[in-house]
Amino acid sequence: MPSTIVTLKVNGRAQEFLTRPGTTLLDALRDSLSLTASKKGCAQGTCGTCTVLLDGKPVFACLVPVETVAGRSIETLEGLAAGDVLHPLQESFIALFATQCGFCSSGMIMAAKGLLDRNPDPSRADVVRAISGNVCRCTGYEAIIDAVLDAAAKMKKAAPSRRKAAE
C-alpha cells in the first residue's frame, strides 16, 4: 500500500500530506489536517454532515478519493469566519437557533454557502433544494431554512456598502 503525497488548497492555504490509497477527502481533512468540523455521519453520501466546497461547489467529502482532487481548492467550515468576524450564515444560525446538537451544522452551513455564493437571492424553495442532501434529526429544518434566508437578506443589504467601500 504505497502512500502518495497529495497537495490541496484548503481554505486558501496549500496543504501537503501523505495519504494511503483510497483515503477520502473527509478522512484527509479530519485525520491528516486536523480539520474536524466536517463530520462522518454515514460514510455513504446519505447524511451530508461532511459537506465541503470543492472549487466552490458543495460535495460529500466522504465520497471523494482525495487523490482524485489533488491540486484543487477546498473550503471547510473552519475557513468561513474572517478571524473573529463570523460569516453571516454563522451569525444567522446562532441568532435564529438553527443549531441543536450541532453535528449537522458544519455540512448544513457549507451546503448553504455553496448556494449563496452562486445565488445571492435564493427563494425558500432554493434553500430547501440546496440542503436536501443534509440530514438534521433535531430541528425539523425550519430554523435552518429561516437562518439561510436571513443570512442571504443580510448579505444583500451589506453588499452595496461593501462595493462602495471598495471604490
Partner: peptide
C-alpha cells in the same frame, strides 16, 4: 442501512 433508505421527511416535506 443508511439515510437514503431510512425514510424521514426532508426539508421539502415539513
Amino acid at each position: 442501512l443508511d439515510f437514503s433508505e431510512y425514510l424521514m421527511p426532508g426539508p421539502g416535506d415539513i
